[in-house]
């Protein structure tokens, strides 16, 4: 089996018939076995809905999907046995200890912690000193590690992580992605959703999703190489007026704040005119965020 997750024409609407809220419209995806796949999009793009459909928690209105060859509707029981799901909201038992949570989730999958300890060893060792502490009393980063352990303890074939890095500090985010790389080496297909575009570069392939539609699916490198226009980073004492000035400058396709700089995308062959003696201007190579911003503005 080459493709671990196949999604074909999945649509989902919420709300009443008169005022439907479209969560997903005609989504199709192929995710290969052993891939670390990123689903990237702003809040409300439909990431969680797609995850809930793939983890058999939600029924799609239209379309079909298979996970590891099992249909998520007809063979939902089989799917539940082989997926690991870590919801966006911490949802372990806060009044059970770290160890009890782990054992509980192992047992309901008819697995044992000892058998699959090799999978979680690297992660669990970091929280092991607190194994008798109640899950509710853990810090955010540790809760997340515990949740990952609990999602892994039954040796899933496919791991769904819904916004695992939301609300986590930058260092822990980095650590978390390192952990995912390790898990990937163990042959688990990992699908991660995130609103942070900078995390896309750590995935094998990413799908950019907005308003329930997939804008692009590609490797991060290919997405970046698709960005051909010249790009400048600009900084000046008055950043707000600078942005206005950029918007009014002929030849500027797009300008947006980017960290301590503004990024200005130029028409091909056009370079940025003089902006004033205080302005610091440098040509930069685009990164994945620039590509996403461009894609989103295209489709907005």
């Amino acid at each position: 089996m080459n493709n671990s997750v196949i999604v074909q024409g999945v649509s989902k609407q919420y709300g009443s018939k008169k005022q439907p809220v479209v969560a997903l419209s005609d989504i199709s995806l192929d995710i290969a076995t052993g891939e670390l796949f990123g689903l990237i999009g702003p809040d409300g793009a439909g990431k969680t809905s797609l995850f809930r459909i793939l983890t058999t928690l939600l029924l799609a209105d239209k379309g079909s999907a298979t996970v590891a060859g099992y249909d998520v509707v007809k063979e939902y029981k089989a799917v539940r046995k082989i997926v690991g799901y870590m919801p966006g909201k911490f949802s372990l038992y806060q009044d059970l200890t770290v160890e009890e949570n782990l054992h509980f989730f192992a047992t309901i999958f008819h697995a044992s912690v000892a058998d699959n300890y090799h999978l979680i060893k690297d992660i669990y060792e970091q929280i092991a000193p607190f194994k008798d502490r109640r899950a509710g009393k853990l810090s955010g980063g540790m809760k997340q590690k515990l949740a990952l352990c609990c999602a892994l303890i039954h040796e899933p074939k496919v791991l769904f992580l819904d916004e695992p890095t939301t609300g986590v500090d930058a260092v822990s985010r980095n650590e978390f992605w390192d952990m995912l790389q390790l898990l990937k080496k163990k042959g688990i297909t990992i699908i991660v959703s995130t609103p942070y575009m900078d995390e896309a570069s750590r995935c094998d392939r990413v799908a950019l999703i907005q308003n329930g539609r997939i804008l692009q699916v590609n490797t991060p490198e290919a997405i970046i190489s698709g960005f051909t226009q010249p790009l400048y980073a600009v900084k000046a004492p008055g950043m707000l007026s600078l942005l206005k000035q950029l918007h009014n400058t002929p030849g500027v396709l797009a300008a947006y704040p980017f960290g301590e700089y503004h990024h200005a995308v130029m028409q091909p062959g056009v370079s940025l005119p003089f902006l004033g003696k205080d302005a610091e201007v440098k040509a930069v190579t685009p990164n994945i965020e620039d590509c996403f911003i461009q894609l989103m503005q295209h489709h907005a």
Partner: peptide, 13 residues
């Protein structure tokens, strides 16, 4: 409310 039922529901329980 806490969301644990979600986690339970994806298990083969």
């Amino acid at each position: 409310e806490i969301g644990t039922i979600e986690q339970i529901n994806v298990t083969p329980i």
